[in-house]
Design a binder for these strands. Sequence first.
RNA 1: GGUCCCGUCGUCCAGAGGCCCAGGACGCCGGCCUUUCAAGCCGGAAACGCCGGUUCGAAUCCGGUCGGGACUGCCA
Length: 473
Amino acid sequence: MTVRVRMAPSPTGYLHVGTARTTLFNWLYARHNRGTFILRIDDTDQERSTQDFEDEILGSIRWLGLEWDEGVGAGGPHGTYRQSARLDRYAALARGLVESGHAYYDDRAPEELEGLRSQAQKEGKHPGHYIRRPAEVATSGAIRLSIPQDETVEFTDLIRGDLSFAPADIDDFVVLRSNGTPTYHLASTIDDIDYEITHVARGEDLLPSTPKHVLLTRALGHDEPVYAHLPLLFGTDGKPLSKRHGATALTAYREAGFLPEAVFNYLAILGWSPDGETTIFSREQAIATFDLVDVSRNPAAFDPEKLAWMNGEYVRAMDIVEFATRIRPHVEEAVGRELSGGEWATFNEIAPLVQERTKLLPEAGQQVVFLFTDLEGYDEQSWDKVMTKEGVGEVLEAGISALTDLDRWDAGSVEDALRALPARLGLGAGKTFQPLRVAVTGSAVSPPLFESIAALGRERSIERLQQARKELG
RNA sequence: GGUCCCGUCGUCCAGAGGCCCAGGACGCCGGCCUUUCAAGCCGGAAACGCCGGUUCGAAUCCGGUCGGGACUGCCA
């Protein structure tokens, strides 16, 4: 039997990192088993569903590299893979359920139902205990599934093991609303049957609904798929992941300059690992070893700091040409204009040094702005810390003459010339080089000094040293 | 309130009765390297929620307890 798994986002919001991880695990499971990964759109909620959200979700999934084999945009033998196109089918099957005696019409008023519920709660019982088929069944209204009371519902969860639910704790839930539209339970269950889904891996929040889906599937005359309920994602404080923990939309990470392969790796490590030692691994390695049964049962905290560290690992592991190419947009963004071919050549000279100290791509742009824009002043802290010291003026002057007399202009020559300064001035290396750094780059924090000066060029380097000398008064 | 799920360092993961006075990673602390910032290297602090039981032996099995979470809609 080939594995067929699906992801079924509702286009009513952005792709949440938790949903992204669920998608990732489904994808990994399909790839590991050489199965089929299906993408379906659960857009029964026409009010809240939008094309923009759908585009955003699909774009995010593609960005992560989780291509799907069947479904929206990819085609397949099951039509549009959009629930909004299948409303008639859901309604027809719901009515069939009434005919076969598995379901019944219910036209009781909301207030009446509410009364039954609060009564059940008052008595410490499950609402299902009261929301049952009335003696007098209606001939119209919503359609509820009738839960057989003589049998406990049992099924196996790949992650949690054998689970069982007492029928009294399952209410006769609505499958078709009185307006004829299906509930999530109905549409999702029918789709899983029609699309021949073999494994349903979803968030643990759906676990309490699973016995309903099992019963519904059986009432429809089929065997239920294998379920796997993934632990939910939390913040590092143990509270459910929300805005106050930072961005929860995957696109926010994309825009912040995270690499898709790093996000992929990080999401995978939330609730799973290939072994006890490995933290960084390729998608091929993940595919080779992934299995749903190995997924952790307890909730995982999404830690942006660890993600950032991991992103740095991926940035540094990147091929230098690729790195230089990928940060171009960020460099131009930081500089505020497009760069010329010559400027790119300059940039490429120090790109390897920038790469080493980059965690997020946009930071890389910040590191090189000094090369392509005029210095608009100095970083205040840097100035106070290094430029207000005794002897800074002499250092700058020595630097100016050392560079002016240079025959050749490259990092090595610049280094040779400047290395001689500390001894000549009777100062420590730091006392000599830091003032030069601040003068040339505007900050006490920058890429390595000699390479920076070499890349800046003789004329502009000396200009900046003179400018700083002037600022000193 | 009820049903269900979960419980190893601050965080993620490893551990499926002796290999564990618990291992790897992020973060943190200290050191080395060093002209800055990173990176790298070395070292350190840091956990089996609690109580019983089973067993020669328990992080691993059982029970209870406490704590956290999800669900409890004609939302998904």
